[in-house]
Design a protein around this nucleic acid. Structure first.
Length: 509
DNA sequence: CGCATTTGACCCGCGC
DNA sequence: GCGCGGGTCAAATGCG
């Protein structure tokens, strides 16, 4: 088989070069384009990689066909799009083409169809591989950020202990050690404009306050969720407990339009309460995850007061059990977002968050809001932007699938507006990026809509798409993905650069 | 009958 | 100290 690559990102008309029919005569404006085979005889079946959409070429009304020969019977097409094969019944010289030529054309078409089927299967396999790699990457990223957070917190604890011992020799060792989870305490206290300077004379009061709050906020999950009558003052035994407790208190809020009482995120939830919240005529429902005994994850569902078509789902905590595929995307996204928010609560917030991969991954403008003015630090993903009318999203415009159509469209559309941070300490983190929309568009071009519609979990494809889109916006991820694919494919020694990924995606589609 | 949901009571933190 | 509001519990209720 000869090498033959065809750019099929747009409708393509395949024609025999021996034909006098000129496909470019249909171009608005009526100017016919020349088709030139460089250095080759026009009468030979020379068909190769054509850049039909190059601005430069188009501007010159000329398409350059690279010289790359193939035999007529070896036509190897890589396209998933509709091809219209135009075969003239006359040669350029005016000679009639025999019936044998038509049979050969039919054979070619059959070969093409077979090859298309094979390539589609291969593309599907590669797509699944990409999803798996992206999921693994996200999990690793979350773990990495958590480790970074713990490491920094340990350093801070050492510094705090040294400062406290120097300034307050009269404080007992236990009182000082109580200040371990100060990282989160700082954020919460500053939230209420009550941050007390450690240099002031009120140091003892500060420690007492920390002690009280820690008793509630840093209690291990098992204590918190099983009984409220256990001793409230629990000093964290290790950093892991501390991290779990603070993580549980960090919230990730997702706003999406939905008529359903609750968005489907792949997890199993049990409602354990409902309250009327102040300032909102709609009740707030409380759910806990029931996929495992003692899972600390809870969520609140409430319609937005300003627009009751918008459903606000607030997640809190980290799952302590394996997740089904349908729940991986949302859970990992919220978990990573919570980790990012925790990372941002450190004193080195700007530098750390700017280096945070997740911060880049979720930084499409006008989507994420970090708010510390709420009782708990909350990162809000606003997925309520109006739908985009791009035909590619027709499947997502189906009302039945609307609940997660919004995330996709929001991610896709997220090229205007600005990411908002309610608290001044986050103001240094200006996240503006429009490459995500391109990446998402790319991803969606490679994902056939019917694939989503036929999934057993309707929300899975959409939520996973949104999460994957966010992940793939990270250039580091692109490089990692390229390396992973290269490694998996093993073989031809060629590497996939991020720049080439677009072409690869196009071919995979 | 078992499980999920509902709903009023209770706990707790916070502000005045 | 008291009241308010958020969050949770658990008995009652509903449903398949």
């Amino acid at each position: 088989m000869g090498n033959f690559t065809l750019d099929t990102s747009e409708p393509l008309v395949l024609f025999n070069k021996t034909s006098r029919w000129n496909p470019f005569s249909m171009v608005p404006g009526g100017a016919a384009a020349d088709v030139v085979a460089e250095g080759e005889d026009n009468r030979r079946n020379v068909l190769s990689e054509m850049d039909l959409f190059s601005t430069r070429n188009r501007s010159h009304n000329r398409v350059v066909v690279k010289k790359e020969n193939f035999l007529g019977n070896d036509l190897d097409l890589n396209t998933g799009l509709n091809l219209v094969t135009m075969v003239s019944n006359r040669s350029p010289m005016g000679d009639d083409i025999s019936t044998t030529g038509e049979d050969q054309t039919i054979d070619k078409l059959k070969d093409i169809q077979n090859e298309l089927e094979r390539m589609n299967i291969e593309n599907q396999r590669l797509r699944e591989m990409c999803l798996q790699v992206s999921n693994n990457y996200n999990a690793l990223q979350t773990h990495f950020v958590t480790l970074m957070h713990q490491q920094e917190q340990e350093l801070r604890n050492e510094n705090i202990q040294n400062q406290d011992q120097n300034a307050n020799d009269h404080l007992s060792h236990d009182q000082v050690s109580v200040a371990v989870p100060r990282q989160f305490m700082e954020l919460r206290q500053s939230t209420h404009d009550q941050l007390i300077s450690r240099d002031s004379s009120s140091e003892e009061k500060t420690v007492d306050r920390d002690t009280k709050t820690i008793a509630r906020e840093d209690t291990p999950d098992s204590d918190v969720w099983t009984s409220n009558k256990v001793p409230k003052l629990v000093v964290p035994e290790n950093m892991e407990h501390t991290n779990d407790a603070t993580m549980r208190k960090v919230r990730v809020s997702v706003r999406a339009r939905s008529d359903a009482p609750m968005i489907s995120d792949g997890c199993q939830w049990r409602k354990y309460g409902q309250k009327m919240a102040k300032g909102n005529p709609c009740p707030r429902a409380y759910y806990r995850c029931t996929m495992a005994v003692g899972c600390p994850v809870r969520k609140q569902v409430q319609r937005w007061a300003d627009d009751q078509t918008i459903l606000v789902t607030t997640y809190e905590g980290t799952h302590n059990h394996p997740l089904p595929p349908a729940a991986v995307a949302m859970a990992s996204t919220t978990s990573a977002a919570a980790t990012m928010l925790l990372s941002g609560s450190t004193s080195s917030v700007d530098g750390f968050m700017n280096s945070n991969l997740l911060a880049q991954a979720i930084r499409p403008p006008n989507i994420a809001t970090i708010s510390a003015s709420a009782p708990f630090p909350t990162i809000t993903l606003d997925l309520t932007h109006p739908p985009n009318s791009t035909p590619i999203f027709e499947g997502y415009n189906n009302p039945a699938a609307s609940q997660f159509a919004m995330p996709l469209q929001a991610f896709h559309q997220g090229s205007s507006g600005a990411m908002v941070y309610n608290q001044s300490r986050f103001s240094g983190l200006q996240l503006s990026n429009n490459e995500l929309s391109n990446q998402v568009l790319q991803y969606q071009q490679t994902a056939p809509p019917q694939h989503h519609q036929s999934q057993p979990h309707p929300s899975f494809g959409h939520s996973l798409s949104a999460a994957t889109a966010a992940i793939t916006a990270d250039p580091n991820f692109t490089a990692a993905l390229a390396a992973a694919i290269t490694s998996i494919m093993g073989g031809n020694g060629s590497t996939i650069s991020p720049k080439n990924e677009e072409n690869n995606n196009r071919e995979l589609g």
